Simulated scan of single mutants.
Amino acid sequence: MKAAMQYQNKTPEEIVRQYKKRLRAKQGLLILIFLLYVIVGIRGIWWGDDGMPDVLLKLFILIVITFPINIWISWDFMSLNMILNQDCDPVTYVQVMRLLEKVHKRKRSAVAIRINEASGLMWSGQFSDALALAEPLRKYKLSVNYQISFLNIRFNCYKKMEDLERAMQVKHEAEVLVSSFKKASLQRTGQELLNVMDASLALWRGDYEAFRRMEEARSAGYTAKLQKVVSAVCLADVDIACNELKNARTHLEYAIQEGGTLYVVEDARRMLAELAQKEWMEGTDYGERTVKI
C-alpha cells in the first residue's frame, strides 16, 4: 500500500524523475561494490596473497551479492504496476511507460515496457491501440509472466471489440501454453488465466449463475483494487439482469468511487444512470397501478 501511495497525486514526469533518481543511486551502489571487489582482487594477486581458487571464490561471492541487488534495482520498475493495480490509473500508467522508453534502451526492457503500455491502453478502453502495440511483440521470446499478460491483453481486447473468433483463438493459445507448464506454481498461474477467460465468456453468454459461481471462487484471492473494481462492475451487470437492483447500485457506486481512470468506470456510470431510470419507471408504473385500483 505504501508503494502505491508514493505515486498518487504526482504527474508522470514527477514519477519518472523519482524513478530515475532511485535507479541511478542503486546502480551506483552496484558499481561501487564491483570496483571494491576488483581492487581487493587485484591487490591479493599483486601481493601474492590469493591463488586462483581464492580469486574464483571472490568472483562467486560477487555474483551471489549482485544477484539480490539486481532484483532490488528491478523492484522500482515492478512497483510502477501499483499505478495501475492499486491506484486504478491506466492513463498515468501509459504516460509513465512512454517516458520510460527513453530511459531503458535494451530490447528486453523495451519489450517489457511495451507490454505494460499495452495493458494500460487496454484498461483505459483503447482496445485497438492496445492490440496495435501488443500484436507485433508475438515475435519476441517473453518470460512466462509477460506471456500471460500478453495473452490476457489480446483476449480482453478482442472480446471487447466483439471479435469472438480471435478471442477464442487467443484462449486456445493460452490452453496450449498452460499445458506445457511443468512447475506447479506456473500451472496455478496459467490456470488462473484460463479461469479469468472462462468467467468472462460466461458473462458474455449471459450464463450468470456460472459467472457468479466462478467469481465467488476467485474473488477471495483478490488483492489488487483493479480486480475488485472490475469484479464489482461485472457483478452489477449480473445483479441488474437478475433484478437485484440494490446490490447492483452498491457495486456500481463502489466502482465509480474507487475505479479512477479505468474504462469500466464509464460503464459503471452508464449502468447506474440506466438503473436510476429503471427504478424511476418502476416507481411510476406502481403509482399508476395504485391509482387505477
Results as ranks from 00 to 15, higher is better:
residue 217 A to V: 06
residue 217 A to D: 02
residue 217 A to T: 01
residue 218 R to L: 10
residue 218 R to W: 02
residue 219 S to N: 01
residue 220 A to R: 15
residue 220 A to H: 14
residue 221 G to H: 12
residue 221 G to W: 06
residue 222 Y to F: 15
residue 222 Y to H: 11
residue 222 Y to D: 06
residue 223 T to D: 00
residue 223 T to S: 08
residue 224 A to W: 13
residue 224 A to P: 09
residue 225 K to S: 05
residue 225 K to D: 02
residue 226 L to T: 01
residue 226 L to V: 02
residue 226 L to R: 08
residue 227 Q to W: 04
residue 227 Q to S: 12
residue 228 K to R: 15
residue 228 K to S: 14
residue 228 K to Q: 15
residue 229 V to P: 05
residue 229 V to I: 07
residue 229 V to D: 01
residue 230 V to F: 09
residue 230 V to K: 07
residue 231 S to M: 03
residue 231 S to T: 10
residue 232 A to L: 12
residue 232 A to H: 04
residue 232 A to N: 13
residue 233 V to E: 03
residue 233 V to D: 03
residue 234 C to D: 14
residue 235 L to F: 05
residue 235 L to K: 13
residue 235 L to Y: 01
residue 237 D to M: 09
residue 239 D to S: 13
residue 240 I to Y: 07
residue 240 I to C: 09
residue 241 A to G: 04
residue 242 C to F: 04
residue 242 C to Q: 14
residue 242 C to R: 13
residue 243 N to S: 09
residue 243 N to W: 00
residue 243 N to T: 05
residue 244 E to R: 14
residue 245 L to Q: 08
residue 245 L to C: 07
residue 246 K to L: 10
residue 246 K to T: 13
residue 248 A to V: 01
residue 248 A to F: 01
residue 248 A to L: 09
residue 249 R to I: 04
residue 249 R to S: 13
residue 249 R to F: 07
residue 249 R to N: 06
